[in-house]
Design a protein around this nucleic acid. Structure first.
Length: 225
DNA sequence: CGCCAGGGCCTCA
DNA sequence: TGAGGCCATGGC
């Protein structure tokens, strides 16, 4: 059988339990949207997790919270050096401290309630105009904070999809995103879960050095490592 | 000890 | 437009 994007999703879903990403994504059945406080924390987390393990990000978020620095006003009023110290554990802390200030300034001009009302396309373009927000961070913010269906592509997604033969190894971000969303249902919860499952699969089997022997996709993997 | 993390910006062809 | 250098900490 030939793998397809929907089949990969189905297989991962059957083998791994639901992932429950971003600490607060259990809301789908209960609430339609998150509080502004929760959205803000997700946006900050999306910046801090750039090329960084989530465990290191949690420590930084806790430090920010402990110092009452998890809001726009506090981030703008805190000295760069102090802010950088709070988020030290997340790495690239000087760069990220600057990005947090830029995002805070951006949110001052474009409040969360305004952004929430925007169409995905316009929202994505606007987010991409902010220095420090690239395609993955923009899609993560749209998907996880604003709960709108924008599919997140990351190195894991690219690695898995290219290895099993569903795209080229050097596929571009937008190209792979278009490929995937053209084949699956446009649904926030599915986009959220699919991405989380891909991350889980990349960590368990499809690592830099893949563990193909026990991989749940090996029978259909075109590469046959 | 080396490798790698839920990237993005800048520079230079 | 795309390849390469840079940013930096913590877990394994």
């Amino acid at each position: 059988m030939i793998l397809t994007f929907p089949l990969v999703y189905q297989t991962l879903l059957e083998n791994y339990s639901p992932q429950g990403w971003w600490p607060i994504n259990t809301v789908y059945k209960k609430r339609l949207s998150l509080s502004n406080e929760e959205k803000f924390e997700i946006i900050i987390g999306a910046i801090l997790t750039q090329n960084t393990a989530w465990t290191n990000v949690e420590k930084a978020l806790n430090e920010l919270r402990r110092n009452n620095c998890l809001n726009v006003k506090a981030i703008l009023e805190t000295k760069h050096e102090t802010l950088a110290q709070y988020i030290k554990s997340s790495g690239y802390n000087n760069q990220k401290a600057e990005r947090l200030k830029i995002i805070a300034q951006f949110l001052l001009q474009h409040p969360l309630d305004e952004l929430q009302k925007m169409e995905i396309k316009g929202l994505r373009t606007l987010l991409l105009s902010v220095k420090g927000i690239g395609p993955e961070t923009a899609d993560s913010i749209i998907l996880y904070a604003f709960m709108k269906p924008s599919f997140v592509i990351d190195t894991y997604t690219k690695r898995i999809m290219s290895r099993i033969g569903l795209c080229r190894k050097d596929v571009s971000y937008d190209e792979l995103q278009t490929l995937i969303v053209s084949t699956i249902e446009k649904n926030t919860e599915i986009y959220n879960e699919y991405h989380a499952l891909l991350v889980e699969h990349a960590k368990r089997y499809c690592r830099t050095k893949p563990l193909c022997e026990e991989c749940i996709l090996k029978d259909n993997c075109s590469r046959q490592f």
